[in-house]
Design a binder for these strands. Sequence first.
DNA 1: AACGTTCTCGGTAACGTTACCGAAAGTCGA
DNA 2: TCGACTTTCGGTAACGTTACCGAGAACGTT
Lengths: 337, 337
Amino acid sequence: MVTIKDIAKQLGISVSTVSRALNNHSDIKKETKLKVLETVKKLNYRPNSIARSLIHQRTFTVGLMIPDITDPFFSTIAVGAQELLSEQGYQVIIGNTLRDKDKEKHFIDSAIERKMDGLIVTPDHLDEELIELLANLSIPVVFLRRKPPKKLKLPYVDVNHYKGACEAVEHIISLGHRKIGYLGMPLESQIAIDRFQGYKDTLQKYDIPYIKDFIKLTGGRTIQSGRETMDQFIPKLPQMTALFAYNDLLAIGALESLAHHHIRVPEEISIMGFDDLEISSLYWIQLSTMSQPRNQMGRYAAETILKMMNPSVTNEIPEYIILDSTLVQRNTCTHVV
Amino acid sequence: MVTIKDIAKQLGISVSTVSRALNNHSDIKKETKLKVLETVKKLNYRPNSIARSLIHQRTFTVGLMIPDITDPFFSTIAVGAQELLSEQGYQVIIGNTLRDKDKEKHFIDSAIERKMDGLIVTPDHLDEELIELLANLSIPVVFLRRKPPKKLKLPYVDVNHYKGACEAVEHIISLGHRKIGYLGMPLESQIAIDRFQGYKDTLQKYDIPYIKDFIKLTGGRTIQSGRETMDQFIPKLPQMTALFAYNDLLAIGALESLAHHHIRVPEEISIMGFDDLEISSLYWIQLSTMSQPRNQMGRYAAETILKMMNPSVTNEIPEYIILDSTLVQRNTCTHVV
DNA sequence: AACGTTCTCGGTAACGTTACCGAAAGTCGA
DNA sequence: TCGACTTTCGGTAACGTTACCGAGAACGTT
């Protein structure tokens, strides 16, 4: 490998002079600087950022821990974060955890040992061990899509799931529906709780009775599980005129089930999703849904971590950034007949 | 930051002894080793892999350059590569180029400066400059989804696009079709050339005349552009009984267009795709297609780069790995009436 | 008791780079 | 021509770690 020493030797000058030439210091003659740059090209020298990192105690890398890059939801967030960070010279290291606890822990370990400058995380398994790990971290951390436990006192970026659910249900109600079901996830995550609460509170706000038979919770977060759960819904269907799903995947699963049972959407039942995935705008689906600003979430998380990594008086670090989701009206939600 | 020095100081021993304790060397007393490990825990010491890299001249990082992580096609490849590499202690750094030439160049630059141990690339803009850059690289490089130019002499992993196209068209023919159109990409990439050639050669093999009007090439690789191009096809449609599309996105665009024009698939026309995306198995689409072993491609690329990074006599480095695609029969391809 | 062997440890240099300090050379005005 | 200042450079130490060599202690053998 060609190093700064080789250049110094070649020109008969010292390494410190070469270093200064390469880093645009002022105390160097223009002539020698040019000679150095010339030799750099000739020898195809490339600075070793490893050595640089060791001195500066900065690696210009940021870790981004997400559950699944295969999921367009998260990859879009990742792209948003990456765009901003790479503009600032940071390398983004994606940790794909597949919602596996050991992988989450392993990634944070690796972030410590590789001396990343910051960390953006969407942890799934936030148990005592992981909290302890994050608490002892000496680098900035931003939470994404999850409020950090009080103990941690870290900034976070999320959308207002509660408000989004309220608006979704409110829209359904504004179309005249009164018998509105909910197809959701078990109340194990805060997001699931918030969206369900939004559903319930909005019903109450409009004096619509809460009917337990209109609620069905699924196991997985896949189209398949949405479909299977909807199959169980079908018998009670005549009473229901609209259904609010926890997310687009479940909604699409429901659409599959309904199509399979020859129940017309939206004529016989209206369906509302949450997320606005790419596939939701497909010709055959055209799902009405709440769109989340995914790319922006990534960007805001990046912006926050940048502020934390480069502290200055003028840069206030926000406690949290809560974004709004927006209603996207397509073809699965219409006036009750 | 707590370093190896702090541990040495705390115990009144030398840093080299601590280092040997941490690296399982034999010339150390069990007693002192235990004391060291104890202090490591007490002080929450973490080895600094940056410093380690500097000495060992290895960073245990591998760069993975892909056009778009948002595309499930590439993210699945990435996951496959990541699985294998992280098992071996490597960190994967994903470079999302968005098919932008500057970003490709920038990522390779960054790979050099950060002293990555290896590189897996799917370059889009393989011009002289980029070839030169790759040629001067002192680290192993594996090409993915693209044959490297002769000048480079690097191993590559790909599927046999020609053979896949042949099998697809052969399957269509076996269903009795003789009037088979092609909806493709401009012949700018090798993949586009191979698939088109497979289409043409198979027609010839079965003495089916090649009709120019049955060929339409699109601009983009999106559903949208597939749809728009299909709209132009519609007038000539009565003569055609089947259509082979360059990939699933174009095929789905075609399905949209056909649905919009109330032309029934597969009753009036059969459609065949290539790639087997997740959405192709959706209830409303059920696209017959050629499935590419995406995860495996990533794994093989990882396996190859691992062999190159850890040379030994027993490990032969393959010149190339060509995988087969497999026919997935769904509902868009049926017997001609 | 003297010897060779094994076990255990410390000191030093090195990886590639930059910060810092001091010194030599050049410049300028009086 | 002299001092003061500026310009330009080199040497050294440091970042955190490991490889290498040599030395002392402990041990057993004759």
